[in-house]
């Protein structure tokens, strides 16, 4: 359902969409049923002259059953939803698959700094590529990200990945994604972070292997002037 509106560009985007779809199907059915019963009762039992309302205490077992049965149904469907949701949660947030590469994401008021590992695919080396508000990743490669913030809370959200994680100053939070579609998409800050919260957009650029190699070569700092242009530890509480 979601992918009709927002592209699905990561391996787990489809799984999250499926959980949402499952919940939609379950609660949608019960919602419509409850509304149908509700409006049906209102029309059926509208006041008519000389018809007295029934006296039902709702305390007798056969009356209580009408509440108890939907109650058990709710429990069963709750369990189903919990199982599906937690499965996806583990996939996205708890289990990190082996990474091909790691990027560092540093949030601050009101910009994103992305540290790419560069041609040698290692962070904290001289050829790291640091960009502002633009993250370059390669198609079909598993990435880890290390997320932190320099000042207040921010949130790293990539809607096409269905990924969202708050950045907290003083903490490093790890996560992963694997892009499955090339293109340029929005990165949002989804945690209010001051007056510039609304002007904190960034873009993620997902490239093919060849294009990414070219970008790496074009942007990697020349080793001669590497030291001044690549601060290995900017003031982000990063290693």
């Amino acid at each position: 359902m979601i992918d009709q509106y927002v592209e699905s560009a990561s391996t787990y985007a489809g799984d999250i969409d499926n959980v949402i779809l499952l919940i939609l199907a379950i609660v949608g059915f019960w919602f419509l049923l409850a509304q149908a019963v509700f409006f049906g009762l209102i029309f059926k039992f509208k006041a008519r002259p000389n018809v007295k309302a029934q006296y039902v205490s709702g305390e007798k077992p056969h009356e209580k059953r009408w509440v108890a049965l939907p109650h058990y149904a709710t429990l069963v469907f709750d369990v189903l939803i919990i199982v599906m949701a937690i499965k996806v949660w583990h996939e996205v947030k708890i289990n990190l698959p082996e990474a091909n590469s790691t990027v560092r994401v540093i949030a601050q008021q009101w910009a994103w700094t992305f540290v790419h590992p560069g041609p040698d695919n290692k962070l904290d080396t001289a050829d790291d590529i640091t960009t502002v508000d633009e993250l370059h990743v390669e198609l079909n490669k598993t990435y880890h990200f290390e997320l932190t913030s320099r000042d207040v809370l921010h949130s790293f959200s990539v809607p096409v990945f269905r990924l969202k994680q708050d950045a907290i100053p003083g903490r490093i939070i790890k996560g992963w994604f694997k892009p499955t579609q090339t293109g340029q998409f929005d990165i949002q800050c989804t945690e209010i972070c001051g007056i510039g919260h609304g002007i904190m957009p960034a873009r993620i650029v997902i490239e093919t292997e060849a294009a990414h190699r070219l970008w790496n070569q074009a942007n990697a700092p020349k080793l001669a002037d590497a030291a001044p242009t690549t601060p290995p530890t900017s003031a982000g509480g990063m290693p």
Partner: peptide, 9 residues
């Protein structure tokens, strides 16, 4: 904890 590290603390 899982996937996070409070380096400041």
């Amino acid at each position: 904890g899982t996937n996070w590290d409070n380096v400041a603390a």
